[in-house]
Design a protein around this nucleic acid. Structure first.
Lengths: 217, 217
DNA sequence: CCTTGCGGCTCTAATGTTGTAGCTGCTATA
DNA sequence: TATAGCAGCTACAACATTAGAGCCGCAAGG
């Protein structure tokens, strides 16, 4: 679309990346709560105001990746090909390998582990993560309601959005659980995650009518 | 005086250094005349206007070090201790090891060689260097005239200034000549340069009356 | 001759970054 | 409880950098 980003835009992304990396290092070293934004700024050799210029809050230093992901997810659904169902667009997007799992090298695994530990060990971060999921669930609800043109009373958009975001939540948990319990074969983890994703989507596709219909023995 | 320079000033010096280094690399690779300022800017990943913001002209990309040296020389003379002669202050300043010669590692020697070759092979640069020396000779003349409080007609400040700047010229030539003819023992070159400097100053101290009084045999 | 284009260099408006002060809420300590 | 200080965050003015247009001299090619 835009060819080369131009020097200005490129340097802005460098600055943003530098801040995000500095923050991650410090948070992993000392824990999220024990690191001040001023320290992040100092490590990135940047003014504190610059940090807040790129990341509205300290938590966003951790979750900017997640938020971008959700933004792209919504966009992928909004701009899906004509005739494609929302569930299909969602599946296509979420099953696409990306990020740490796509890289697959040892260093990525190490970072994924550290970040997972960091988030898991901070109540503030876990709480914020839930807020983010809630916010995106609401956005997705609105999008679905808009596209299907139903009344505000109709519960179906909210249920569908919760189900979809729930898949994402579940897959993230899947990755964290395996990473935190020592899994270090990233390609394998990627495969098992995709398998789980497919199962989840298949379940949503065919409905819950016959799911766990009988109590197990 | 100012403790830490502050982030702003520090980053400015980084930028300045980055531009100067990029320019030196390119000039050494392709020759001064065949490299455009736009290319320097591109290698430094900086706007062309930024280059001119730090270096008023393309030649200054090469001679900014020399100009800073001359500035400091004038300052050292202006601010010399009470009772110290101009010649003594000059001697103290110019005999102090610094720059490439002070470093003494192989890489410095390599760079000194490359820069010397670059200047020697560019008429434009050689011409500009003479202009710079002339400008500083004039400045120094003014300074001496001011401090000794003589009439504009008095030739002595001009002669003294020429003599002093002449010492500097000569020492630079000394270094270049040895470097270009293959000398790569930088500490040794530093010593021989300082020896030459002392001889030159001694000559100026005692006057030319009995210098080369008799034709050699 | 003339035009075209390049390179050194200048100018201006827009935008990114910094420095500094200050507000709020919380925590430690007197 | 009062007070002081720290951390997250905001606001604003000063400053550094960028983008883009444009001027001038000059050399190459029609």
């Amino acid at each position: 679309m835009d060819g080369q980003p131009g020097r200005r835009e490129r340097k802005k992304q460098q600055t943003r990346q530098l801040i995000a990396d500095s923050a991650r290092q410090l948070f992993v070293e000392h824990g999220f709560e024990r690191v001040s934004v001023a320290e992040v700024a100092r490590r990135a050799d940047v003014a504190e105001a610059t940090v807040f210029n790129y990341f509205p809050s300290k938590e966003d230093l951790v979750f900017s990746g997640l938020e971008r992901f959700e933004d792209e997810l919504l966009e992928a659904i909004r701009d899906r090909a004509a005739g494609e169902t929302i569930l299909a667009a969602f599946a296509r997007f979420i099953l696409m390998p990306r990020g740490f799992l796509a890289a697959g090298d040892d260093e990525s695994a190490q970072r994924l582990l550290e970040v997972s530990r960091m988030i898991a060990s901070s109540p503030a971060l876990l709480a914020r993560e839930q807020q983010i999921f809630a916010r995106y669930t609401a956005s997705l609800t609105g999008l679905i309601a808009e596209e299907t043109g139903v009344t505000d009373d109709d519960p179906r958009p909210g249920v569908a959005a919760s189900a979809l975001i729930g898949v994402h939540r579940t897959l993230i948990e899947h990755v964290r659980r395996h990473i935190l319990s020592g899994e270090d074969d990233i390609p394998k983890l990627g495969r098992s995650t995709r398998t789980a994703g497919k199962k989840a989507i298949a379940l949503l596709e065919r409905g819950l009518a016959d799911y766990a219909a009988r109590r197990s023995s």
